Lab assay of single mutants.
Amino acid sequence: TEEYEYTDEQQAREAAREWREKGYTVTIEEHNGRWRVKTG
Rank of each mutant, 00 (worst) to 15 (best):
T1M: 13
T1R: 10
E2P: 09
E2A: 14
E3F: 15
E3T: 14
Y4W: 13
Y4I: 08
E5K: 04
E5G: 05
E5F: 14
E5V: 11
Y6L: 03
Y6Q: 01
Y6N: 01
Y6H: 03
Y6A: 02
Y6C: 03
T7R: 08
T7L: 13
T7Q: 12
T7K: 08
D8H: 06
D8K: 04
D8P: 00
E9Q: 06
E9N: 03
E9A: 07
E9T: 02
E9Y: 13
Q10E: 12
Q10L: 12
Q10N: 12
Q10S: 12
Q11D: 12
Q11H: 08
Q11R: 08
Q11Y: 05
A12V: 03
A12D: 00
R13D: 05
R13V: 10
R13N: 10
R13Q: 12
E14V: 08
E14S: 08
E14I: 09
E14R: 09
E14D: 12
A15F: 07
A15H: 07
A15D: 03
A16H: 03
A16E: 04
A16P: 00
R17I: 08
R17L: 08
R17V: 07
R17P: 01
E18L: 14
E18N: 10
E18Y: 15
W19N: 02
W19Y: 07
R20T: 11
R20A: 13
R20H: 08
R20V: 12
R20Y: 09
E21N: 10
E21Q: 10
E21I: 08
E21M: 09
K22L: 11
K22N: 05
K22A: 08
G23S: 02
G23H: 02
G23A: 02
G23Y: 02
G23Q: 02
G23L: 02
G23I: 01
Y24V: 06
Y24Q: 04
Y24F: 12
T25W: 14
T25A: 09
V26Y: 02
V26D: 00
V26W: 01
V26N: 01
V26R: 00
T27I: 12
T27Q: 08
T27Y: 11
T27L: 08
I28Q: 01
I28T: 03
I28H: 01
E29Q: 08
E29L: 09
E29S: 11
E29H: 09
E29K: 07
E30M: 12
E30S: 08
E30T: 07
H31L: 11
H31F: 12
H31S: 10
N32M: 07
N32D: 11
N32F: 07
N32G: 09
G33C: 04
G33S: 04
G33N: 05
G33K: 04
R34W: 07
R34F: 13
R34M: 13
R34L: 13
W35P: 00
W35T: 00
W35C: 01
W35F: 07
W35Y: 07
R36G: 04
R36V: 15
V37D: 00
V37F: 03
V37N: 01
V37M: 04
V37A: 01
K38R: 12
K38T: 14
K38Q: 09
T39P: 09
T39N: 05
T39F: 15
T39M: 14
G40E: 14
G40I: 15
G40L: 14
G40P: 06
G40V: 15
